[in-house]
Nucleic acid binder design. Structure first.
Lengths: 237, 237
DNA sequence: CGACGCTAAATTGTATACAATAATTTGCAC
DNA sequence: GTGCAAATTATTGTATACAATTTAGCGTCG
């Protein structure tokens, strides 16, 4: 069900089979912005949708809440997370904090094969940018995140990899909420620049480019506090 | 139930009440090394212990598995995590990667009050080191981790704070498994040095000290692969 | 006409029941 | 007595049932 760069990812999971699938499906839907922030995810609905009992639906929603994609409120249910501007800032602050280090670690271990895989991912990303239609747009969103995920995978640290998965997914939510233009075209070329620096073993430049890249994404956000909805609109979604 | 530096921590949780308590209780037991790595945590036992149904016990164990403290194997149950040497390396690599950045961020925001709180935590830590007895030893373990957690809390980034909670907790497991001497005395003075650097607004020195501190902890580990237990001992725990 | 309060419906919280899988014991043959 | 196999027991996986809480609808009252 996952598309592109899954040869490297080892999702660690040894546990549940069904829950895993449901969790991944919902996560993909959130990351690809088919599910808008704030959308209610009732246990019955989710269970019905995947033909399982509420037990498993609930477990999947719980799991998603641990990665910050779903917020579950006691006695009220689960909702697609609606990150506040402050949360958004913290997510990007975390990315600025960890991504250079991850990149540095990846640069030390990267093989020619992996460099080629990165290039290929970039190509795919570029191809999708040319296409039209919602589904191409979704794949493009996914591919642009997969670049950062693949770098994390190359770093060889499963813990940082998992953490980056969380950060990338939550970033997608933030961009959905606060993004202004579709910054993707600019982001795409920046990915390419980073790969080039990596090819030349220029770690410092790569890290700088990465920081700029993150800053660019963040600069496209309009992180003003939305006044907490006119009393009614907030609950009539 | 938590002891010292909880004024700063906001566990975010809005969900379950009972599950939360169980999760925290088991986590404390693991971090304080009352539960040895590899110990089986059967759902019935956990539920019985806290007077709740298997449903809630299971939820708590799932939660713990998401933070890497418990590993649940399909159809076999949950066990206190038994990190491999490779995992241990990755945990400390992750700490080296993020703690300088967290410290830097904390240094920018720290207030005199918080500096005093850090000093006080250090004092408490030192006091416990003098005491004898298992319970003092446990409190000491906790306090030494709380130093890093408080720095993360001061950084003001809830995401990095949560991540550090995971890393500190998992470190405790690693030390329980692979630690040689009780390195705590040396670690204690290093905590003090970091605070001093912080007081003098010397961020670079503070970061260097932090890296050395982490390196010292890691240097005390014997990360050789234990041959996978002589066939019987592995299952007769 | 809007605000308050009550009842009914829907949804979540928790426990229990049953099915499926793994661990243990028993029994038999060698 | 040892080794293997079947049966028994225990434990996890999943669904369902019931309790508690919230939400929605509705009628009354100001």
């Amino acid at each position: 069900m996952n598309s592109s760069a899954d040869g490297l990812l080892t999702p660690i999971d040894s546990t549940e089979t069904g829950v895993q699938q449901i969790r991944d499906a919902i996560r993909d839907a959130i990351v690809e912005r088919r599910l808008a922030p704030g959308t209610k995810l009732s246990e019955s609905d989710v269970g019905g949708l995947f033909n399982v009992s509420r037990t498993l639906a609930r477990a999947a929603l719980q799991a998603l809440s641990y990665e910050g994609l779903v917020s579950v409120e006691k006695n009220r249910g689960a909702f697609v997370a609606y990150p506040s501007p402050e949360e958004a800032r913290q997510i990007f602050a975390a990315r600025r904090l960890v991504e250079p280090g991850i990149l540095k670690s990846a640069a030390e271990r990267i093989t020619p094969v992996q460099l080629r895989q990165l290039r290929q991912l970039l190509l795919e990303e570029g191809r999708l940018m040319g296409e039209r239609g919602q589904s191409a747009r979704r794949a493009e969103i996914k591919a642009s995140g997969d670049f950062h995920l693949m770098v994390a995978a190359i770093s060889g640290n499963l813990i940082m990899q998992r953490f980056m998965e969380e950060l990338v997914a939550r970033s997608s939510l933030v961009i959905a909420l606060y993004g202004q233009s579709s910054v993707s075209s600019c982001g795409h070329s920046e990915h390419g620049d980073i790969i080039t620096a990596l090819e030349q073993k220029d770690v410092d430049t790569a890290c700088h480019l990465m920081l700029h890249h993150i800053a660019h994404i963040e600069a496209d956000l309009d992180l003003r506090e939305r006044k907490s909805f006119g009393l009614k609109e907030a609950f009539e979604r």
